[in-house]
Write a protein that binds this DNA or RNA. Structure first.
Length: 337
DNA sequence: TAGTCGTGGCG
DNA sequence: TCGCCAAGACT
């Protein structure tokens, strides 16, 4: 009788075998035509990596193309206004990344004459560049050996090496970084880094991974021990709270009143309908909308309310040149022109 | 260590 | 409809 649950005993490949296996796989099955993989420059890699933080490739692509049209060089970005920068980032989310990218451009122009450094230590000093992004820029922009650990690598390594520790813990993070450094090859750095990301994104996926397509199946600990569905282990998440918000709509033939939000909190420095702590009395409800953030849900009510004076009023057809949060832009788009 | 910070797609 | 998750950084 055949035991369908049989798995071969697994021993991890050594670093040389591992890197050869995944780079060969990447050459044949990986992603090699993404916009930032063509005409590679350090600036294009920097832009793509900041945009790709916690954001999927398909979402980033149109933003990346538009960004390079508006800010072709790092000098163009460094000298651009914050309003112009935020207008281009509008809708992509995590807006501190846009300000960091802007700061990064100025930093590199001021400190390095516009030339990004190629080593992790100096890259870590660039605004918005953390441990992952520093390694990614070194590998992708300069083809230099550098460990990268992102969500893909954490998932891939936790399964491949059978790491049981909670994936977001400092201890597990340290373990995986150590393995990542140990397994980083001396040559073909760019393709190796891309191989890890491609494997994680297209084969070793969070759920329903395609183990039959995986070049590492034979030596994968999680596959051998039938723990692919269990690893990586995650902490229980308490469900996110719901908050209510009150927004004011003052729309005339001259446009709608917008205010620039503070640098703190959600949607920092983006242009928005005026928000109030308490619902205005004797105001009629114009409409409602809901929005989900990563850490809370917003239940919003929009009140028709005239704003006294001195406010910025923007014509509806000029709104695209302002940086607006997505749900506000969507709400305004429903208004009759 | 844990919270903050967006948005869209997917099952 | 809802929870999960994505090329994380910063505080």
């Amino acid at each position: 009788m055949i035991d369908k649950t049989f798995r071969p005993k697994s021993t991890p490949l050594n670093p040389l075998e591992f890197s050869a296996t995944v780079t060969n796989w990447q050459r044949q099955y990986g992603r090699n035509d993404l916009p930032w993989q063509i005409n590679i420059t350090p600036y294009r890699v920097l832009v793509s990596e900041l945009m790709l933080q916690q954001t999927q490739v398909a979402t980033v692509i149109p933003y990346f193309e538009r960004w390079l049209q508006h800010f072709p060089t790092i000098e163009d970005l460094a000298t651009a206004s914050e309003d112009a920068v935020m207008a281009q980032w509008q809708g992509l989310g995590y807006y501190s990344r846009a300000r960091n990218l802007h700061k990064a451009a100025r930093y590199v122009v001021d400190e390095f004459a516009g030339q990004l450094p190629d080593n992790v230590d100096e890259l870590r000093e660039v605004p918005g560049v953390g441990p992952y992004t520093a390694g990614a820029i070194s590998a992708f922009a300069f083809n230099k050996p550098a460990a990268i650990v992102d969500g893909n690598v954490k998932r891939l390594f936790s399964r491949y090496f059978g790491i049981e520790g909670e994936i977001s813990s400092a201890k597990t993070n340290k373990t995986i970084w150590s393995l990542a450094e140990q397994y980083t090859p001396v040559t073909d750095s760019r393709r190796y880094a891309q191989a890890l990301l491609d494997l994680g994104a297209t084969v070793c996926t969070p759920r329903a991974p395609s183990c039959q397509e995986c070049p590492l199946q034979e030596s994968c600990n999680a596959y051998a021990t039938d723990r692919v569905q269990i690893l990586p282990t995650k902490k229980m998440k308490s469900k996110i709270p719901t908050r209510s918000g009150n927004f004011l709509l003052d729309l005339t033939s001259d446009g709608v009143v917008l205010v620039q939000r503070s640098a703190d909190g959600i949607w920092p420095r983006l242009w928005c309908l005026p928000e109030t702590d308490e619902p205005p009395k004797n105001a009629t409800i114009h409409g409602k909308f809901k929005h989900v953030f990563s850490h809370y849900k917003l239940d919003a009510t929009v009140f028709a309310q005239s704003i006294p004076n001195g406010a910025t009023r923007v014509h509806l057809d000029e709104i695209e040149s302002y940086g607006l949060p997505t749900p506000i832009r969507k709400y305004l788009n429903t208004l009759p022109t």
